[in-house]
Amino acid sequence: MIPAAFDYHRPDSLQDALGLLQTHGEDARVMAGGHSLIPMMKLRMAEVPHLIDLQAITGLRGITIDGATLRLGAMVTQHEIIEHAGLSCAAPILREAALQIADPQVRYMGTIGGNVANGDPGNDMPGLMQCLGAEFTLVGPDGTRSVAARAFYEAAYMTARTDDEILTAISFPATTGGYAYEKQKRKIGDYATAAAAVLLTRKGGTCASASIAMTNLSDVPVWSEAAAQALVGTACDDTAIKAAMAAMDADIDPGEDNRGPVAFKRHVAGVILSRAISRAWSRT
């Protein structure tokens, strides 16, 4: 379990990190917490002749809450998300999801930026970012651009980020109404068999707006507008939840693997979504 040899770089500014990516091209890769990348390097599924550790770039850290907009530096860890009181108030779904990622040791090291940039369908944050309508800030040699989370994922491990860009921050609006992040896993610390992120608002007795995203049920996270639409205007009763489950089922495309056959995954996805909707509705 020893990775191939590499040269290690620890730049202390974003400009230096971008410069190293330019100089070394395809041979270079950035590392955040390393808790997806190091296991891949140990298995020699990833070879990185020039490893650029982002830990010393202070500009990539920090959580800011500016009115109704939240901004997280790419190097904010899952542990920091869980501990941040302001964030838990402004977008409690983020803490609920972070608590279901991996285990304490991994959460001290794993970052939000690494989790969303990785492109692994098993990661939990990409689905949640679809649900929240987050924007990702990318900085490259040609400057800064913003990409919607919902337009970021192209295929497993393929994203809209080009190799010479660094993800610097994630921003999204504060949430109102009910929320739930529900995840089925084989054991604590496991990736999802299926997970659902649900945000709902209520007006009187009915659902005024909804956003629903699913994790690990396709090679990209699935934002299901149809499932959300099935809830709007209803009282989120059994009939409405069944309609949302059917709409979601048409949007996912799970594959068979060691977490089970396709029929099982579709079944679990339905159960998880139904629980998430009920819990979110009970919190509106």
């Binding site: 379990m1 290690y8 620890r10 590392m31 390393g34 808790h35 190091i38 296991p39 140990k42 490893l51 550790d53 830990q55 542990h79 285990d103 304490p104 040791q105 991994v106 001290y108 090291m109 610390g189």
Partner: peptide, 28 residues
């Protein structure tokens, strides 16, 4: 040696980490 069991846990700058998943360069 695959980041799962925690037998290698040490404290690094106030964080519990699995030392099988930290490069020594990273810990410098």
């Amino acid at each position: 040696e695959t980041s799962h069991c925690g037998a290698c846990t040490v404290t690094m700058d106030g964080k519990s980490v699995k030392s099988c998943t930290v490069f020594v360069a990273q810990a410098n």
